[in-house]
Design a protein around this nucleic acid. Structure first.
Length: 536
RNA sequence: GGGCCUGUAGCUCAGUCAGGUAGAGCGUCGGACUUUUAAUCCGAUGGUCGCGGGUUCGAACCCCGUCAGGCCCGCCA
């Protein structure tokens, strides 16, 4: 069973109606790692729907969280906002300074700045959660009743946190963080409580009162989370391994939510996605790949497959080079399989059966449109990468594929894919390994590997290509024909050509590549190769 | 200090919850294709399941210990 189905199965034992929740703090650029949170939730919800449950998927944006520090991508002016809530301060402009104009005219906040592009990416990926803005929820009184309970039962909560996390809370700890006289959550001391007011004294020596029902402050994280479960009615939530560890916020949350009078949701801990060779992604370290950026390179179903194919407790190493090519090709292979026929085979061992079921499950989760069956495009990414590099126009690519009998007419999916392929090739992410390059000077080692026949073929090829009509068709015919004229196998023609032009034993189809290049240059290179062979 | 996760073929991983002859995909190698040679098809190759003990007729799987990597016990997906 696919991991999402396992989770859905667990939910089905607890009831028929469910709310699967996810949440992210919009403190910086969203990246692929955040996508795992959202996609994990989306896939559980999808699996639960498949299992006939009534399920809603929500995404809580933690706009009530404070700005922790002036990140590297922010200008020094943000110093004044440290401790202020992300949903109440202006977003950065392109220089990293507060964009007051948009803030005052459109109410464009720091949270919006990072959230909106992410939501656009989610749309493309086929994820459409109900968005809950946490700061608004506080201001609209959603947390009112639960905040009151938390303040009333603060000793029970304190005991739970101290026991489970093993840390000691300060004497003046209080389960409500009031906003101070300047709107910051930092450095405020609670001096008293009479519902709905929490009295405080701030770091400037000013005293005041915070109204719980109006969101003039927030619950600290370890209480904020279970309180959300409570008022939203969350029954299932995936979260990163940081929250999942013993003594972590899920462990305290599951007890606190009961103190608040609700049941804890079904948990699912997932591992991080790291960027190959660079450790965990972190916005401030700048080693991130955003979902938008990734979507310029590959279609959304491939990003979905990345998350769908790995069990949540497996760390994922991501990179935009060869791993992405392999992932994309894997998608194609999976799309081409007929799982129901495979499963009909009664000879299958239990193990083989599980493997096929998991692959089928992963594909159900990977397709963008729920319920659709993935369609193989009949062209692997490798092949498309090749065509995109050798054909300067799209119609050239389609002609080649038609001639090969791979397609009749390009589908929208394929057109779309070629677009992304072209931007991938143009980007810094495209792997060198996939790049087609013709040598500029003879490659002695590769030439030395040729046997006598192949060397003769190379010589003949040099003169033959010099008089060849310079188009793909004629070049393509000339290579094997030259070999045959000398009573050698067509293979020796290719071997000779690859050794001379690319310094390798094999490679991509030569003819279309050569046709795009200058005949004189190619022939000069071939002649140089012949000369270097004669000298040795 | 306490706790969690991971360790299985060259690589990525299934299989561990319900113990019963080690599984996939990729890669590699070989063959086919008289001409799309990074393609496609067919075939083969490949593992003392991190290590040591224990329980059992039988252990990758359960128990104890141990090593290695990652993470948590302020905040972080």
């Amino acid at each position: 069973m696919h991991w999402a189905d396992v989770a859905a199965n667990a939910l089905s034992h607890k009831g028929a109606k469910h709310i699967v929740s996810t949440g992210i703090t919009p403190s910086g650029e969203f990246h692929i790692g955040h996508l795992r949170e959202i996609l994990t939730g989306d896939m559980i919800a999808r699996a639960a729907r498949n299992a006939g449950l009534d399920v809603e998927f929500v995404f809580i944006v933690d706009t009530a969280d404070p700005l922790r520090k002036v990140y590297d991508f922010l200008g020094p002016e943000y110093e004044q906002f440290v401790g202020h809530q992300l949903g109440s301060i202006p977003g950065p402009d392109k220089d990293g300074n507060p964009d007051w104009t948009r803030f005052e005219n459109e109410g464009w906040t720091y949270g919006d700045h990072f959230l909106k592009p992410f939501l656009q990416a989610l749309e493309q990926i086929g994820v459409r959660p109900r968005i809950i803005d946490n700061l608004e929820s506080y201001q609209n009184g959603r947390f009112d009743a639960l905040s009151k309970t938390a303040c009333d039962k603060r000793e029970d909560i304190r005991e739970a946190i101290e026991r489970i996390s093993g840390r000691e809370l300060a004497e003046d700890w209080f389960p409500w963080s009031p906003l101070d006289s300047k709107g910051s959550l930092d450095g405020v001391t609670v001096t008293g409580y009479e519902y709905p007011l929490v009295h405080w004294k701030d770091s400037h020596g000013i005293e005041g009162s915070s109204n719980l029902t109006k969101g003039e402050g927030k619950l600290p994280w370890r209480i904020d989370w279970p309180a959300k479960w409570g008022w939203i009615g969350v029954t299932c939530e995936p979260f990163g391994k940081d929250h999942g560890a013993a003594g972590g916020s899920y462990a305290t949350g599951r007890e606190i939510v009961q103190i608040l009078g609700h049941e804890p949701p079904h948990p699912l801990t997932y591992e991080w996605i790291s960027l190959k060779g660079q450790g965990a992604m972190s916005s401030s370290a700048g080693n991130t790949i955003g979902p938008i950026e990734a979507l310029e390179l590959v279609p959304p179903e491939i990003l979905r497959l990345l998350v769908a194919k790995s069990k949540p407790n497996k760390a994922i190493e991501f990179d935009t080079g060869m791993s992405l090519v392999n992932l994309a090709d894997e998608y194609e292979r999976l799309a081409a399989r007929d799982f129901s026929t495979e499963l009909a085979d009664e000879e299958l061992s239990r193990r083989q059966r599980v493997q096929i079921e998991d692959a089928a499950g992963a594909m159900r989760m990977a397709v963008v449109q729920e319920g659709e069956t993935a369609e193989a495009t009949a062209v692997t990414f490798r092949h498309l990468a090749l065509l995109a590099q050798t054909k300067s126009t799209d119609s050239g690519v389609w002609d080649s594929l038609r001639k090969a009998g791979a397609i009749a007419e390009p589908t929208q999916a394929l057109i779309d894919r070629l677009d992304r392929m072209r931007s991938w090739i143009a980007s810094k992410h495209f792997p060198l390994e996939m790049k087609i390059s013709v040598l500029e000077a003879p490659h002695a080692q590769a030439l030395a590997a040729l046997d006598e026949d192949e060397q003769r073929v190379l010589e003949a090829l040099a003169s033959k290509l010099a008089i060849c009509t310079w188009d793909a068709e004629h070049i393509g015919a000339a290579i094997p024909q030259t070999a045959k004229d000398l009573d050698c196998s067509p293979k020796s023609g290719y071997r000779a050509a690859y050794a001379a032009l690319m310094g390798k034993e094999r490679g991509p189809r030569l003819a279309p590549i050569l046709a795009e290049m200058d005949q004189g240059t190619i022939c000069a290179l071939l002649n140089d190769c012949v000369k270097s062979l004669q000298q040795s």
